[in-house]
């Protein structure tokens, strides 16, 4: 997994360099490596695949327009992309046009729309689905409200009736759990490699 992340980092450096030179090859690389994840994030927020693609297009336009403004010292490139995608999607959901197109559902119902949307959207990897399942629903709900619904911490406080301090610690706990899972994945990969090697050796004998 560390290896994997090293690769991700190399890719990011390459893209960042291209962006800083306003080289359109950056967009192709971003598309190949991140379009699916960014589309997934957006769809989780807006619900419909069609609107999600619209928003993804806007996201790419924003990334390209701001190509010279990314600063690696402030965080990873992926985080930058993801936050542009997320904010564009949330803006879309909150725009008058979007509300009109979903007249039957009041804005208060956004949470439940989203829950339905999440069931429709396919999860890419069964292994990753397990990661998701392993996270306590109360932590997932928090990430969903904060990240995908764009609730402020004060709004979450009202919505869930839990104090601000608890929200902050739970958010941290949620990410901690994800990090734990990453460690496990690392171990599993190592085991797979060892088993494969052992098999190879046995065949050879």
């Amino acid at each position: 997994m560390t290896n994997n992340f090293e690769k991700r980092d190399q890719l990011e450096q390459q893209i960042a360099l291209l962006l800083s030179r306003s080289d359109r090859a950056a967009i192709d690389l971003i598309y190949q490596n991140y379009a699916e994840t960014l589309l997934g994030v957006i769809k989780r927020i807006v619900g419909s695949h069609e609107i999600a693609e619209e928003v993804l297009q806007d996201t790419f336009i924003k990334i390209w327009k701001n190509a010279l403004k990314y600063e690696s010292g402030k965080g990873r490139l992926f985080t930058w992309f993801a936050n542009i995608a997320r904010n564009t999607a949330i803006d879309k959901v909150r725009s008058a046009g979007f509300r009109k197109s979903r007249e039957t559902t009041s804005t208060e119902n956004l949470v439940s729309i989203d829950v339905l949307g999440s069931e429709e959207s396919k999860i890419a990897d069964a292994g990753l689905q397990k990661v998701l399942d392993s996270i306590d629903p109360k932590y997932r709900q928090l990430i969903d409200l904060a990240y995908f619904q764009g609730y402020s911490q004060r709004e979450i406080e009202k919505e869930l009736g839990i104090p601000l301090g608890t929200i902050k610690t739970r958010l941290r706990k949620a990410i901690d759990l994800l990090r734990e899972q990453l460690k496990d994945d690392h171990l599993k990969q190592l085991l797979t490699i060892i088993v494969t090697l052992t098999n190879l050796l046995n065949d050879w004998h």
Binding site: F5, R8, A35, E36, T37, L39, G40, V41, K43, R44, H49, A52, E53, L56, G75, R76, F78, T79, A82, S121, K122, I123, A124, D125, L128, Q129, V131, L132, I143, I175, L178, R179, Q181, L182
Partner: peptide
Amino acid sequence: IEYAIEKYLSLYQDTPS
């Protein structure tokens, strides 16, 4: 933290048309 978030968000991958 950012790696963890990338991993988490990639759970929702979806294919464009």
